[in-house]
Amino acid sequence: MAPVVQIQNIHKVYDSGEVPVHAVRGVSLDIQKGEFVALMGASGSGKSTLMNLLGCLDRPTKGVYKLDGIDVAQLDKNELADLRNQKLGFVFQGFNLLARTTALENVELPMLYGRHRRVSGSAIRERAMHCLDMVGLTDRADHFPNQLSGGQQQRVAIARGLVNEPQVLLADEPTGNLDSRTSIEVMGVFQQLNDLGITIVMVTHELDIARYCKRNLILRDGVVVRDEPTEFRLNAAEERLKMGEAEVAAKLTAAPFA
């Protein structure tokens, strides 16, 4: 089967300043359906630029990027928008939910822009509820983002990313704004979705978060310096259990002083 993401010798040069910045210098990459990739690197390594390229928010200066067999270079601005809408789901570090808009309406948002799809309001609502169910938030559908915890907000964002049944779910530092316990909760959601066959590409700079993925890519100075399957892969469900046990243990030991 053809890879969902096919990148051949891709370059990105920013020309805006006095000196052109060569952010990505020749990355080649294939991502198969069902993969769970962690993209790692220090700041300035070019991982954000690569993520923008993968997300069709930006176009490569040189090289070929085929998403689900479609050559991105041939598309204009609106066609790129449609491609993002149909083939990609986005999860951001800062959640980026619309304020004063319910969880359900936030999830519905990508379907409002979808062309020639699901025109009836009830079908849209049903599909959005289904996606909220996938992240376990059906009981929070009518809540506003400010009434939800960080983890819940990120799960709403994930549901929004899933709503148009994308080929790839792109997550940019999805745990960056969360504490470790909530991070594990969110990684658990990603693992469950990946088990259902959803392809996930995630940018992170936390090594232990990357260990929940299946494949680790490390970028440095705009080139891929390491690309290997995850060693000692973590399972979110087990980690949560362990964390719970550790807390109980901490409480037990603390008891005499209480």
Binding site: G55, L57, K77, N78, A81, D82, R84, N85, Q86, F90, N96, L98, L109, P110, Y113, G114, R160, N164
Partner: peptide, 11 residues
């Protein structure tokens, strides 16, 4: 930005 990223056209 969110709207544009998830597929809104400029129009």
């Amino acid at each position: 930005g969110i709207r544009l990223a998830i597929g809104a056209h400029g129009r």
